[in-house]
Lab assay of single mutants.
Amino acid sequence: YKPCFVCQDKSSGYHYGVSACEGCKGFFRRSIQKNMIYTCHRDKNCVINKVTRNRCQYCRLQKCFEVGMSKESVRND
């Protein structure tokens, strides 16, 4: 598999339409299922990588959408 499109960590396969790691897969699923609203405490362009991905949930979710993750493919079960 290609590296995670969101944070470049080791991917566990294709999730919600893109190559993603377990961490970003779970983060995206929880964010969508719980209708989470995050805020960025900087200027909405935080670097998201394996080391920084937990620092800003707003920018991490934005990057999930930017790389093509589909909220329609998240099931509500």
Rank of each mutant, 00 (worst) to 15 (best):
N35L: 06
Y14V: 13
D77A: 07
D9R: 03
V67S: 09
I48A: 03
D77L: 06
F5Y: 10
Y1T: 08
G17Y: 14
C56W: 00
I48F: 09
H41S: 08
C59T: 03
F28C: 00
R53D: 10
V67Y: 02
E22T: 07
R55Y: 13
P3F: 12
D43G: 11
N45T: 11
T52F: 06
I32F: 03
E72I: 07
S12N: 12
C59N: 01
R42M: 15
N49R: 04
A20D: 00
C46W: 02
K2F: 05
K71E: 14
P3L: 12
C40L: 03
Y14N: 10
E22D: 10
V51L: 15
G26H: 08
N35I: 02
C40Q: 03
F28D: 03
K25I: 13
S19T: 11
Y14A: 14
K10C: 11
K2G: 07
I32K: 04
F65G: 04
Y14S: 09
R75K: 10
C4V: 01
K10E: 13
G17V: 04
Y1E: 08
Q57E: 15
T39R: 10
N45M: 10
R53E: 14
Q33H: 07
D9T: 00
G68A: 01
L61S: 00
Y14F: 08
C46I: 02
C21D: 00
V74Y: 05
F28M: 04
N49K: 05
Y1H: 13
D9E: 10
M36T: 12
C46Q: 00
D43F: 10
C24W: 00
C7G: 00
T52H: 04
C56T: 02
N76Y: 12
Y16D: 14
A20W: 02
C56R: 00
F5A: 12
G26K: 04
K63C: 03
C56P: 02
P3S: 12
V67M: 09
N76M: 09
R30Q: 05
Q57T: 06
E72D: 14
T39G: 07
V74S: 10
K25R: 09
V18P: 04
I37Y: 05
M36E: 14
S73F: 10
Q57N: 10
T39I: 11
F65P: 03
D9K: 02
C7D: 02
H41I: 09
C64Q: 04
D9N: 01
D43S: 10
R55L: 15
V74M: 10
R53V: 15
C21F: 00
C46Y: 00
D77W: 05
C64W: 01
S19Q: 12
L61D: 03
T52P: 07
K44I: 11
K50H: 13
C40M: 03
V51N: 10
I32H: 01
Y1A: 09
S11V: 06
S12D: 15
K71D: 08
K34A: 11
N35R: 10
F5V: 07
D9Y: 03
C64S: 04
N76W: 09
Q33Y: 05
R42Q: 14
V51I: 13
R29M: 15
K25V: 15
F65E: 10
D77V: 09
H41T: 14
K71L: 10
S31C: 08
R53L: 14
D43E: 13
A20I: 12
K25M: 15
S11C: 04
C64K: 01
K44N: 08
D9I: 02
V51S: 11
R42T: 10
R42L: 14
C46L: 02
H41P: 09
R42I: 08
E22Q: 05
I32S: 04
R29A: 13
C59A: 03
E22L: 06
C21V: 01
C46D: 04
S70N: 13
A20V: 09
C56M: 02
S19Y: 09
R30C: 02
P3V: 10
K10I: 15
Q62V: 12
F65K: 08
R29F: 11
S31Y: 03
V74W: 07
Q62R: 08
Y14P: 14
V51K: 10
Q33I: 12
S70Y: 05
C64P: 02
V74L: 10
T52W: 09
T39D: 13
D43Q: 10
K34V: 07
T52V: 10
K50E: 14
Q62E: 11
C40W: 03
K10S: 15
Q57H: 13
V6G: 02
V74A: 12
Y16L: 09
K71I: 09
Q33G: 09
Y58E: 06
Y14C: 08
K25F: 14
Q8V: 03
R30K: 14
Y14I: 12
A20H: 00
C46P: 00
M36P: 06
G13W: 02
